[in-house]
Design a protein around this nucleic acid. Structure first.
Lengths: 305, 305
DNA sequence: GTGAAAGCAAAGGGACTCCCTATGGGTATC
DNA sequence: GATACCCATAGGGAGTCCCTTTGCTTTCAC
């Protein structure tokens, strides 16, 4: 079977016109080069050099081979360089998972951070929904992600909490905001909740369910929508109240529901944002960079852990 | 040091998404491939695959490496071929792809032509179906082929049309043959079509779909069979009509459906037969000979371009 | 013409690589 | 929870790679 080593030896011999000189140039002994050329000739079934007393002379076949051999060796070298460039974050793709409020808080800024440091790279911020992100992690399509936990079961996954995001009650009705909202108040309220498709796994929902469960109540939502922006708008129109992470309220209330306000829950409830990756996974430099940048950004907005 | 063997293993693993499958495909044991990949990863200093319990997932570095690896392996293969070509016609094997009607028209005669000129060579006429031929071309298992286009996408391929083959309507019912068949008539007809497995890529089908599509109709076949001989026989039994290249009708009607006749389509429709090979491939003298002979044979039967 | 120098081939041996089988652990699927 | 699948590791045999030594042929100098 043809090998790069054979081609490299061939080129050296061709250029130097001598096995001995080629060997010296490559740092081998002369018989080693002799053997490589011989096996190359055997695999190709062609004589490449005519042995002429003093030195060697390339045959027609060698002339033909030379250009191809150079291109092949060059191409292999190019492959090595290309991979190296990816490692150095000069080029290639950086893929990271980010779901829900984490993306809302830090998505654009995170990408900006990466591009500022490494202008050559492509960035993919994956995160249509939490199930997708989780699946991508499990199947190795992405190395790590920042998501809100509790999530779908996390066995086999390493979960590193990085920040708490307090849940707040938002409403356009000032009467609803006079004092922190208790489980009782929550059970009485007319609520709009987002992420309806993922309601079973949605982190905020799970936290609320737990809070209500402890007082023996069942959460009932009045309106279900997909994206949190719509929920906030509905709150602004006074059609319902809602519970959202504080960062979301800070960002969206002024823009989408200027007349609405927020109040804490009692007892205080928090979403936990965490970095998640597969156990025992060795993270690439690119992913570690994403983790560091994302963590920094999130901690500016939420309470660091 | 990077080696071709490592790159070949890498590509196999990338394509199969599994070490085991790659090992089977290459004819090695699984641990051997595992070791090759591991040493490749070590020499490059990058993880190429994420081991995810069941199978492996390529990393970003692997995505980058793939294109270069393919080019390198391909280049080495090309080098081998180029040298081989120097001595080809005396001892070597002549391998040529020929699919569908082209083979039916010229297969046996073509082999006879080659053997007459070069009694020493082995001849392989490859062509189970168009997808296979195309794959063989891409991977360099055959240097060139004569096939009917339009084919699966042809990027990286050099396509040289050599002849047109008119499509004709065949039927055992004289009423159906009174005048050229239009798109309307075709849509009304009860048709038997061959090459059912490759229906999506079959050249004749594509031409017909285009013809019907322009009049807003959908082609519907009554009967689907694999080989065109069966289709013609069914036409002969009066069970359905069909559309075949004229050369096929000329050859097969007298033999398999003596009572049937043919009539043109309106507007006229043609299959294009073309020589296809990889861009920048150095064709061996043997292959060039095959191309010349095949072209000559085909032009005797169809309309030259 | 003869000795010396240069260069390739062959032989023998040590280290390493390649590839195998057998086995263990983790992960999906039923 | 049992099963099947897939990868990693371990250990060993065969082959390769590369070395040094040696011998042969050609070339060059005297």
């Amino acid at each position: 079977m043809l090998s790069l080593h054979q081609l490299r030896c061939f080129l050296a011999v061709y250029e130097h016109g001598s096995l001995t000189a080629a060997a010296e140039h490559l740092g081998y002994a002369q018989p080693s080069i002799s053997e490589q050329i011989r096996t190359l000739e055997r695999t190709l079934g062609v004589d490449l050099f005519a042995r002429i007393g003093r030195g060697v002379a390339p045959t027609a076949a060698a002339e033909t081979l030379r250009a191809h051999a150079e291109r092949t060796v060059e191409s292999a070298e190019e492959a090595r360089r290309a991979v190296q460039a990816v490692t150095a974050l000069e080029t290639g793709t950086v893929r990271f998972g980010m779901f829900g409020t984490a993306r809302l808080y830090a998505g654009a800024a995170l990408i900006a951070d990466v591009l500022e440091r490494h202008p050559g790279v492509r960035v993919e911020l994956v995160g249509q929904n939490s199930s997708d992100v989780y699946d991508d992690l499990r199947r190795g399509r992405i190395e790590a992600a920042m998501i809100a936990v509790p999530q779908v079961h996390s066995e086999g996954m390493s979960v590193t909490p990085v920040a708490h995001d307090e849940l707040v009650y938002i409403s356009a009705n000032p009467d609803h905001l006079r004092s922190p909202v208790t489980a009782h108040g929550l059970a009485m309220a007319s609520l709009v909740m987002a992420e309806t498709t993922w309601r079973a796994n949605d982190s905020t929902r799970i936290v609320l369910r737990q809070m209500l469960h402890e007082t023996g109540r069942n959460p009932q939502t009045r309106i279900e929508v997909e994206d949190v922006e719509t929920a906030v708008e509905l709150v602004g129109m006074g059609l319902a109240d809602s519970v959202v992470p504080r960062g979301v309220a800070d960002q969206l209330l002024p823009r989408l529901a200027p007349t609405a306000g927020m109040v804490a829950l009692r007892p205080r409830q928090v979403d936990t944002l965490a970095i998640v990756h597969r156990n025992r996974a060795t993270l690439s430099p690119a992913t570690r960079l994403m983790i560091d940048l994302a963590t920094a950004r999130i901690r500016e907005i939420c309470e660091p852990i």
